[in-house]
Design a protein around this nucleic acid. Structure first.
Lengths: 205, 205
DNA sequence: CGATTTTTTAACCATTTGGTTAAATTTTAT
DNA sequence: ATAAAATTTAACCAAATGGTTAAAAAATCG
């Protein structure tokens, strides 16, 4: 059992352990025994708390999705000016993901495994991202002449890519650039300002 | 048909099938039976050609890595001016990945599973990316005053993120933006020019 | 044709894995 | 103290899975 977990309640410990293992290994790579070990309990007790792997996985996945998406939606759907929206998105998203660095790859993987399951289960109802408003906002700024002519979809992709990808490519970047964990953290912290500045430089007239 | 060609045709079918399954499901999610089915043969023959899953996986992974990395290295290491390098990278990389859309997620996943294995096996020797030259080149341009002041690492991350991520997030983007496969292909084609233009707008003085 | 190689069939094995069970033990709360 | 709940132990099961085997059948080639 990892010492960070020994004082928590059993159910919380299991969920934390499951999150760690699932997020690290994915649904098919995760072993119930690994989760039990990580939680410092045995398999029997694990099944005493959670019926089966699928149910446990779904809880973890939902929690992950719930952590990643609603805040984005709120920003995209909000009434801030475009540049402020971009700043808010980077700020909030990088903050979340810095504390949960493996979530993006985990979620992207599971979406790729079964896009429809994801659509049905996670985006059932209100939590579904609605980038329409954000896209229209970009379009309006283009037509007003405030920013350069750009396809809003590309701008959206650029924003999301620059914000998310470095976390998924962390080991690659680290091995390649010789960056320590602390340095990586600092880089991501910088990107909260760096990305908005970069984008605004790219599109402002 | 000669003996060697006969061998090769079945072997090639197996490799193609293995690539499809591994890249879709990952190492732990892939089933040998699925690969055999996909290749239109039986499990016995599959093991007649390939000793075990690990060996097969390694061949596929190496092939994938060999497809993705050496070309990048050549561009980063080349003698083109900075802006041309950025253009070449986007052009060539998007071309490769358009024909192998699942490779990036596959490779990123396996790197995350075991960064050191990757380092040792794939980047053993010359094929290891060496972004140093590219980074220094950016630094020189900054000092020359040709481009705005920017941390070269952030610029590199931005370039790679914008180029690679949309392929990994394809299902997400498609579900969210209502984009068909053809439209997605067109978008990626556009990004060959869009990303360099975006970056150059962001950094040029 | 006859020898060799490829492929199938079909059974089989060992291990892993998700999951169960029942009894015993420990902890917690009343 | 005692009942209830939490936890362990340890064995077990069934299905999935990677891998093997031997013999037969089909294709290939000299």
């Amino acid at each position: 059992m990892s010492k960070a977990q020994k004082d928590k309640s059993t159910e919380v410990r299991i969920l934390a352990a499951a999150k760690k293992i699932f997020v690290l290994k994915g649904m098919s790579g995760a072993r119930m025994q690994d989760i039990a070990d990580e939680a410092g309990i045995n398999k029997a007790l694990l099944h005493y708390y959670f019926k089966n792997k699928e149910q446990l996985f779904e809880m973890i996945f939902m929690e992950a999705a719930a952590k990643l998406f609603p805040k984005i939606n709120k920003i995209f759907d909000g009434d801030q000016p475009l540049f402020e929206k971009i700043e808010s998105f980077c700020e909030e998203y990088i903050t979340i993901v810095t504390d949960n660095p493996f979530l993006p790859l985990f979620v992207i993987n599971e979406i790729n495994q079964d896009p429809d399951y994801f659509l049905k289960k996670v985006w059932a109802g209100k939590s579904k991202p609605n980038p329409a408003k954000f896209l229209e906002q970009i379009d309006r700024e283009v037509k007003k002449g405030t920013i350069k002519k750009i396809n809003p979809v590309h701008l959206l992709m650029n924003l999301i890519s620059m914000t998310i990808f470095p976390f998924m490519g962390k080991p690659m970047f680290q091995k390649n650039l010789g960056v320590s964990d602390t340095q990586f953290r600092q880089l991501m912290e910088q990107r909260k300002k760096e990305i908005p500045a970069f984008i605004i430089d790219a599109i402002k007239k």
